[in-house]
């Protein structure tokens, strides 16, 4: 059953992955064959890197062109003048500010709730033995195999009945109680030695106290992984807002940008690219700051998306 989770050894492998000290022995180029292999390796690496980043580079460069220049043939890779004004204009020509405010609100609230309830529930699953616990956890795991798309309709009906659809709270409810956080935290809690909480118990700490004073401080890396992944996930979500947020005042960045494409007849592509770049910047910053946690978190529970 745990087969669906990443094997424990893999988690250890991940820890090793995340620490980026360079390998100590760099093999000296040996036989010609080996040297050829290394050259081929670098060639593949460079091609792969180009393939990975060209779309992003193109996006950023296009955001600094004039509207006509975006689709000029041949492609201009470096615009003669950088039109920084695109970034000014997008704020005035769209409701970017509203979109960002809504998205930020959702991402922060969802992340807070997910981290809180996820880590709390994970402690119950990892450290307290009671009848029905394993069966319940199995239900949690089982939902991995059930795509959200297959129950989005009854969920929508339910939310409409509760009168929360077409409010930001619908997205909070949708995202905040996922099984994702529970898995990730449970995985991590199980690597913390039992003796620590045992000692605390003998000192008279309650289970809640142990969670609060022992487990939370010790699981900061996992909490960081969970928080970053949830934040990014909520920031990027398109389908949830598409279904629930009809009122343009409630739109998120993703919905706004999509409407920008479909609504403007004379879509100013340079402006659009400026908007796209702005929407990716927060993710890029978070990514740069927390890359280590992303690597660990993504692979530990393989549940995003």
């Amino acid at each position: 059953m745990t087969g669906l989770m990443v094997p424990v050894e893999d988690v250890r492998g991940l820890r090793k992955l995340a620490d980026s000290t360079p390998p100590k022995h760099r093999p000296r180029a040996g036989t010609p064959l080996r040297r050829a292999g290394r050259v081929a390796g670098y060639a593949v690496l460079i091609i792969a890197a180009l393939g990975l980043f060209t779309p992003f580079i193109w996006m950023v460069i296009s955001s600094l062109k004039t509207s006509n220049e975006v689709f000029s043939v041949p492609v201009t890779w470096f615009p003669e003048i950088f039109v920084w004004n695109n970034y000014v204009e997008i704020w005035t020509k769209s409701d970017m500010l509203t979109w960002i405010r809504n998205t930020m609100f959702l991402s922060v609230v969802v992340t807070f709730l997910q981290v809180l309830t996820g880590s709390f529930a994970a402690y119950g699953f990892a450290r307290i033995r009671f009848p029905g616990r394993d069966a319940l956890f199995l239900v949690y795991i089982g939902t991995i195999a059930v795509p959200w798309q297959s129950y989005m309709i009854p969920q929508f009906i339910l939310m409409s009945e509760l009168k929360v659809s077409n409010t930001l709270w619908s997205i909070v409810l949708l995202q905040a109680f996922g099984a994702f956080g529970v898995f990730l935290m449970k995985q991590y809690y199980e690597t913390i030695p039992e003796e620590l909480s045992e000692a605390a118990r003998l000192d008279g700490l309650s289970e809640y106290g142990i969670w609060r004073r022992i487990m939370l401080p010790l699981s900061v890396p996992a909490l960081a992984s969970l928080a970053l992944l949830t934040f990014v996930n909520t920031w990027n979500d398109y389908l949830g807002p598409l279904i629930y947020l009809r009122d343009p005042n409630l739109w998120t960045v993703q919905l706004g940008l999509k409407s920008f494409v479909s609504n403007l007849f004379d879509t100013n592509y340079a402006l659009l690219f400026a908007g796209l770049t702005i929407s990716v910047i927060p993710i890029a910053i978070i990514f740069l700051v927390g890359q280590k946690y992303f690597v660990e978190g993504l692979a530990t529970s393989g549940m995003k998306g």
Partner: peptide, 20 residues
Amino acid sequence: FRTAAFFPYITSIVAIAIVW
């Protein structure tokens, strides 16, 4: 490269889809 390679995975589908 190891970390950079999954940047596409965490950027938004909307941005990616429009750019592509």
